[in-house]
């Protein structure tokens, strides 16, 4: 049985670190990611990645315009790194947001893939 207790390692300040923007969609609350073309997508793999945190922070200002348009809530920047199957959130909390509950592999983003 998979109890999903793999360890998430983080290396803050790593040169391989990149940044993405996430939020929750207002209407259904689901996790979404800011994507090229200033749209919102459901998979981290489709998200726009920023090389520098400052760049992501300035994009966050534009992303937050969609809070005012009542499309999303609680937009924020988080760190990602390259993984074998695409970008992986660096922090465990962001990683679980980007995949789904580790105790229910049939639910959340991980179920769609």
């Amino acid at each position: 049985m998979d109890f999903g207790y793999q360890i998430f390692h983080s290396q803050p300040g790593s040169r391989l670190m990149r940044y993405a923007i996430s939020a929750n969609r207002l209407r259904d609350g689901l996790v979404v990611f800011f994507a090229p073309g200033e749209t919102w997508v459901e998979q981290l793999a489709d998200a726009r990645l920023f090389d520098a945190e400052a760049e992501a922070e300035s994009a966050l200002e534009r992303a937050r315009a969609d809070e005012k348009k009542n499309l999303i809530v609680e937009a924020f920047v988080f760190a990602v790194k390259a993984g074998a199957q695409g970008p992986v959130a660096n922090h465990i909390r962001d990683a679980i947001r980007a995949t789904g509950p580790t105790v229910r592999r049939d639910l959340g983003k991980q179920a769609a893939g």
């Binding site: 109890f3 207790y5 679980i96 509950p101 580790t102 105790v103 229910r104």
Partner: peptide, 21 residues
């Protein structure tokens, strides 16, 4: 725990599951 909760700092359910097992 962190599998669902925005306030959590760590997961609870997987620990419960493994102890139970």
């Amino acid at each position: 725990g962190l599998d669902y909760c925005a306030l959590a700092t760590a997961r609870s359910i997987p620990v419960a599951q493994r102890i139970s097992q």
